[in-house]
Amino acid sequence: MLVLEDVNASYGSVVALWGVSIRVEEGEMVGLIGANGAGKTTVLSTIAGVLRPARGTITFGGESIVGESPEDIVRKGIALVPEGRRIFPGLTVEENLRLGAATRSDRLGIQQGIDEMYQRFPILGERLHSSGGTLSGGEQQQLAIARALMCRPKLLMLDEPSLGLAPKLVGDVFDLVAELQDTGVTILLVEQNVAKTLQIVDRAYLMRTGRIVAEGPAYELREAVDIKSAYLGAE
């Protein structure tokens, strides 16, 4: 479904990705793990069209998406839940959800989508007219995910959904992500929480300093001895 081949990307003169190749098949949940600064977020930004790759190809459903604008990539069915949630604090819960459907124009479908989200995330339905900034961290994460689902994505990319949440809520978020896969959406999950991620994903890629250093089914990576060292950034 999504194929990155030999992708290099850089911020100005600083190269952040070196020859990154990733495949995500339809219906899969794939993890992208590694320490802080390994380049995981950069991979997502590059797929989302925020950053343009300096080299390599990115195809989605067999079509190249390199050089497309972020909104065209959303239209093609790739949604991103950005790091730190990035909900719109001054807008109401409902307005946040309506924005998730910014690329859609079917008024009725959007309303239906909002109702669906209220069923799946009842807490959001209760706080319909509250501004997003008044929600708790866990609620904001639910809102960020619901907002991304509003564009009916084929591929959902989550960037550190457990970051900054209370330990009890971290488990809830992973449960939620696991449930999402059951609804048929393909997921690319970026996480620092390696142990929890490898419990729910099908396959994973391990990144270190801008490179993919290991890949394989979750159970294999779980057993790989050097995960801990990669995670801690040690050689």
Binding site: V50, E71, R75, L80, P82, F88, G90, A102, T103, R147
Partner: peptide
């Protein structure tokens, strides 16, 4: 209004 609050987030929403 969304782009005023979180420019990058609005952009990846497709605004």
């Amino acid at each position: 209004r969304a782009s005023r609050e979180q420019q990058e987030a609005a952009s990846v929403m497709g605004v």
